[in-house]
Design a protein around this nucleic acid. Structure first.
Lengths: 240, 240
DNA sequence: CAGTGGTCTAGACCACAGT
DNA sequence: CTGTGGTCTAGACCACTGG
């Protein structure tokens, strides 16, 4: 009794691992974790079992071992930029993203979109064009192309505010993205939508993204950012 | 004979690990590795020792375990964009990078450069301005700022072709970079250096980079890319 | 010194693959 | 069935750290 319903099936090293994870959860970096021998006697398991549990947490980056001293809560390691959505990258700047859907309909995939989505040319795809704002200012025009089965029935209801949130709910949050980035001048249509005056030349940042969940292409998009209102930030680590 | 000079000091799990690594080096994905028990009898060690060796290779992404089947050479996992130098990213496109040094001298760090380099304002820094070409065409103007102790004596000899190669030789290859990217219009000086005609507005991609080796800032740079001749490519994975 | 993590042994039983 | 990896035990000695 008492214990979790599934206790019977729990592996010992998992029990120890999760116990330690809870102890360590939110603790300040440098806080000592229980020593290996301490856990051995607490759980009545072999030391190798405890080490297996701690090894997992070390690989996760939660713990650090210091030979001769002990095991401690690791200081958070630097992490490279994850695949971020517009909503998220705006939130990171402390602003709230707003979205105006300009267009949302079925279309036949053109050759470029079809190749990127890995579907046959002419296949039905969903084309979703949005004007994206932050802090009340127009930031970006974004054309998203989706395979119809990625978000079935989207067109029949209210379009979601955040594409990535919708994908997340379907268990399809992008885990991988391939982006290309270049500078260009805004077209007349873009100038109009982005509230750019007609007098001066307007550079924009064009970002093409192909986002995948595992091996599945979930998003193909092209965005044009007003360069005076948006800078892309990247953190990159080694390829390893 | 034959064996490595330092064999005496080698840990057993390291010996096994490197043995397997050599076996597996360059093998096709899916190729089976020796079974654990096979290695046990080959090396006369305990199975836990063999597992420790293989675990390391699994974490490295070199091997994959398939319960009930065996251990196999893993198919190369997708890897996000590493911190790349101009030379490397041009090479990735199948071209050769050329460099013309426009300026290389000591300067006093301005406030922005000083902050980025984590030195006191007014400290001596090395300012290195280069015109970068690929395929015979001007691509980019790059201003690099270096702390004097990062590449001591660079100014007194021939400037290296590739900054990252020089850093690599000093054991200071960037392992981390923080970049910001935006679109802008070329200045008159940039138009001149980049062979851009004076008639049409010329969008450029401005990339500011702060590159670190571990915790040490090794490079601070600002680059302006001709957008019609250069597109940035990125592959991003989850933050994990 | 006592305590820590790092390494290592020589077994064991299990679930699962393929034959 | 046999062979594989996954889990686990109950010890052991080492090098290192700190007091």
């Amino acid at each position: 009794m008492g214990q979790t319903v599934e206790t019977a099936r729990e592996l010992k090293h998992v029990v120890v691992r999760e116990h330690v994870r809870n102890l360590v959860q939110g603790a300040a970096p440098g806080t000592p974790a229980p020593s290996e021998r301490e856990l051995v006697s607490q759980f009545g398991v072999a030391r190798m079992t405890v080490r297996q549990a701690l090894d997992a947490l070390v690989v996760e980056g939660l713990l650090e071992r210091m030979p001769g001293r002990g095991t401690f809560v690791a200081r958070p390691r630097r992490t490279h930029t994850p695949v971020a959505s517009f909503t998220e990258s705006v939130a990171r700047r402390g602003q709230v993203a707003e979205t105006v859907t300009l267009l949302a309909r079925r279309e036949q995939a053109g050759p470029g979109v079809a190749r990127a989505l890995e579907v046959a040319a002419g296949s039905p795809v969903i084309h979703w064009r949005r004007l994206r704002r932050a802090g009340g200012e127009a930031i970006c025009i974004q054309d998203v192309y989706l395979a119809p089965d990625v978000l079935p029935g989207v067109l029949d209801s209210v379009m979601p505010e955040s594409l990535y949130e919708a994908l997340c709910r379907r268990g399809l949050r992008p885990t991988w993205s391939e982006d290309s980035i270049r500078a260009d001048l805004a077209t007349d249509e873009e100038r109009d939508l982005l509230d750019i005056g007609a007098d001066s030349p307007a550079p924009v940042l064009r970002v093409s993204r192909r986002a995948l969940h595992g091996e599945r292409v979930v998003e193909v998009s092209r965005s044009a950012y007003r360069s005076d209102r948006h800078t892309l930030y990247l953190q990159l680590g080694p390829s390893s």
